[in-house]
Nucleic acid binder design. Structure first.
Lengths: 336, 336
DNA sequence: CAGGGTTGCGTGAACGTTCACGGCAATTGT
DNA sequence: ACAATTGCCGTGAACGTTCACGCAACCCTG
C-alpha cells in the first residue's frame, strides 16, 4: 500500500530505480547517498527519502568493484567455545570496527574441518587474514597470495606477519613461583597435539631442566575443561608426590582444579595450580586461579595493527616489521 | 624470480592476466577455476597452475555482482566477552558454514556504540541479519529493508523473524525447585536495564506472586560477574533472611557465588543459587551451578534455519512461520 | 557587459566476473 | 558420404556503482 503498485518486485531496488523515482541521474543519487558536495540540500533530502522508501541500499558488490575496497578482515578461530578465543576475537572486532573494516569469522571447531579449510573458506571473502592456524599457518599465506596474513602462536620462517609468545620466559616465571613456594614435585598438564608435545610443553620441560627439577607430563585428550578434569582425577592418584601443577591454559586449569577437588585434594595446600592465558574465568573458579596472564585485548590490537601495516606496506612495496613476540605476566591469586 | 619480470605490480591479478598467461580466453579460465564442464583436463590443470602462480583469486565483488550472491550473514552480538554469546555465535557460524554462507560479526560492547550502530555497520555488508539487538530490534528491520532479520530475545510485533524464550515457564521451574527445597525467602538478581526491570525479572516477579512468596529484587550495575559479585557481597548483609537466589544469567550467577563466598555464606546450605542459560562455566565454578539451561547450539540452529526460510520465502513472496518460542530446562547441580 | 568562477546536475567509461550464446573441428551415426 | 552430435573454446552483454569529465545556468567583479 505504501510503495510500488506495479506488482511485487522480488528484485532489490537499484540506484536507477531511485534516480527514476526522483527524476534525477545516477550520479545525483550517489551524491545524495554518500553526502558528497555538488548537490542542493533539497534534492539531497528528497533523494534520501525516496531511497529509504524504496528500501534502496547500495550494492556492496558494485561499490567494492569500482572502488577496489579492502575492508574485509578474515578471522579464523579454532574453537569459539573456548573463552580464550572470544576474548581475543572481541578485541580484533573492536579494533577492526574502529578502522571501518568488517570481520568475517570462521570457527573450525565442531567438525568444521581443519584450519586450512577455514582459510579456504575465508580466502575468497576477505582482503586480509588473522588467525590461530597452527600447522595450517604456512599454507595460509600461499592461499592468500599477496594479501596480508597474521598468524598467532606459530612462529613462521618466511616474512609473514606473526605474533608469538615468549614461552621460555613464561615457563621460567611459573616454575620460579612454584619453586619459591617450596614446591618440588612439579607436573605439567598439556593439551592434545596429536600425541606430540606442544610448544608450551617444550618450554616448560626446558625450564624444568634448567631449574634442575623433575617434571611429570600429563596429556589431556582435548583442549577442554572436562578433558583436563578427567585426566587429573584419574592420573593424580598415581602421582602422590606432586605438589605443583602447571597447566596448558586457564580453561584446562579450571578443569584441573575440579579434577583435584574430585580426588579430594586441597588447592593450594596439597597442590598449587598455575594456569596460562589470564582469561576472566580464572577469577570465578574456587580457588581463584594463579595464571600467566596475557593482555588479550593488546594481542588483538597488535594483530590488527600488523594487518594494517602490512596492508599499507604492501601498497608501497615495502615489508614492515612483520613479527612480534609478547610476554606473559604472572598474576598471583589463590591457587598458587 | 618465480613470477613476472616486468616490475612489481601492486595491482592484484585478474582473470585476464591468467587468460593471457595461459593463452586462452576469460571464459576458459572461469571454467577451470569453477570446475565447470566443457574444458579439457589438460587445459584445466594448466590454467589452475598458472592461476596459483600468479596469485590469482576471483574478485568477490565481480562475482557477487554478476551472480547476485546472497551468502553473507550478519551477526550482531552485544558482548563477545560474555560466554553466553560465543556459545551461541559458535553455533550460528557452524550452521552458516554448512550452508556455504559466511558470517560477518559485529560486537557492540566495549564502547562500539549501540545495537543500532552495529546494524548500521552490518547493513551494507550482509544479506540477512541475526542478533541480540534488544531495543534496536524494531529499527533493524527498517534498515535492512526487505532482507531477512532474525531477532533473539525480543518479541516483535510485526512479521519479522523472532526467537524468544518462555520466561514465565522458566521462572516457575526455578521457583518451584527452590520452594520444593524448602526455601522461602527468595531474591532475584537482575542485570542492568537502564534502571528498568528486565523481561526475565518481570517473569520471575509474576511467578513469585503466583506462588505467593515475597521477592527481593537486587540489580547489578552491569551484565558481568564482577558487578554481580559486588552487589551480592554488599547487599546480602542486609538481607539476612534470604535463603534462595535466582540470577539473571549464569555469568552473573558465578559472580554471585563469589559474592556469597566473600560474605561468608555457604552455598547451598545458607542460600541456594540458580542461574540461567546453561553455559559451560556453570560446571567449573564451586559449587557447580544449578541452572535453567538452554541448548544454545539449538538456538543458533533455529536462528539460521529461520533466516534460511525467510530467504527462500522472500523469493517466493510468501512469509513462513517467522517466530519461535523456546523453553528452558532445569539442570540440577550442587548450588540448589 | 565580457570574462571567470561557482553551483547543480548529467553522461561515458571502467571495475572483474559470469551468462547466454555462437563457432569450429573432430567424432559419431546411418 | 553426409548429416548430426559432441568436445572445446571464444565473444558480446550484463550486473550496479563510482570516477572523471562535461555542460548549462547563475552570480560576481571590474
Amino acid at each position: 500500500m505504501t510503495s510500488s503498485s506495479s506488482g511485487a518486485q522480488a528484485r532489490r531496488a537499484t540506484i536507477l530505480d531511485v534516480a527514476a523515482a526522483a527524476g534525477v541521474s545516477r550520479q545525483t543519487v550517489t551524491r545524495a547517498m554518500n553526502d558528497m558536495p555538488g548537490i542542493s540540500a533539497g534534492t539531497r533530502e528528497r533523494v534520501q527519502r525516496l531511497a529509504a522508501e524504496l528500501g534502496y541500499s547500495p550494492s556492496r558488490f558494485a561499490k567494492g568493484l569500482v572502488q577496489g575496497a579492502r575492508t574485509s578482515l578474515g578471522l579464523a578461530i579454532p574453537d569459539l567455545t573456548n573463552p580464550y578465543f572470544p576474548a581475543f576475537a572481541s578485541s580484533v572486532v573492536e579494533e577492526a570496527t574502529q578502522r571501518g573494516w568488517n570481520v568475517v569469522v570462521d570457527d573450525f571447531g565442531h567438525g568444521s574441518g581443519s584450519g586450512l579449510d577455514a582459510v579456504a573458506r575465508l580466502e575468497p571473502q576477505v582482503d586480509a587474514l588473522v588467525g590461530y592456524l597452527g600447522a595450517a599457518s604456512n599454507d595460509a599465506q600461499t592461499l592468500m597470495g599477496r594479501r596480508p596474513v597474521v598468524v598467532l602462536d606459530y612462529p613462521l620462517g618466511h616474512a609473514a606477519g606473526a605474533i608469538s609468545f615468549d614461552y621460555p620466559y613464561a615457563a621460567r616465571l611459573a616454575l620460579g613461583q612454584l619453586l619459591a613456594a617450596g614446591r618440588r614435585h612439579i607436573a605439567y598438564l598439556d593439551s592434545d597435539h596429536d600425541g606430540a608435545v606442544s610448544t608450551r610443553g617444550l618450554a616448560v620441560a626446558a625450564a624444568a631442566e634448567e631449574a634442575g627439577v623433575e617434571l611429570v607430563v600429563l596429556q589431556a585428550a582435548a583442549d577442554s575443561a572436562p578433558s583436563a578434569r578427567e585426566v587429573v582425577r584419574i592420573k593424580v592418584e598415581r602421582q602422590r608426590g606432586v605438589d605443583g601443577l602447571l597447566v596448558f591454559n586457564d580453561l584446562m586449569a579450571a578443569g584441573a582444579l575440579k579434577g583435584l577437588h574430585d580426588a579430594g585434594w586441597k588447592v593450594p595446600e596439597d597442590c598449587a595450580v598455575i594456569g596460562m592465558d589470564g582469561i576472566a574465568l580464572g577469577e570465578l573458579v574456587t580457588p581463584e586461579l594463579t595464571t600467566l596472564s596475557l593482555d588479550l585485548r593488546a594481542v588483538g590490537r597488535a594483530a590488527v595493527d600488523l594487518v594494517d601495516n602490512l596492508l599499507s606496506g604492501a601498497v608501497e612495496g615495502r615489508s614492515p616489521d612483520a613479527s612480534l613476540v609478547l610476554k606473559h605476566r604472572l598474576v598471583l591469586r589463590q591457587s598458587a
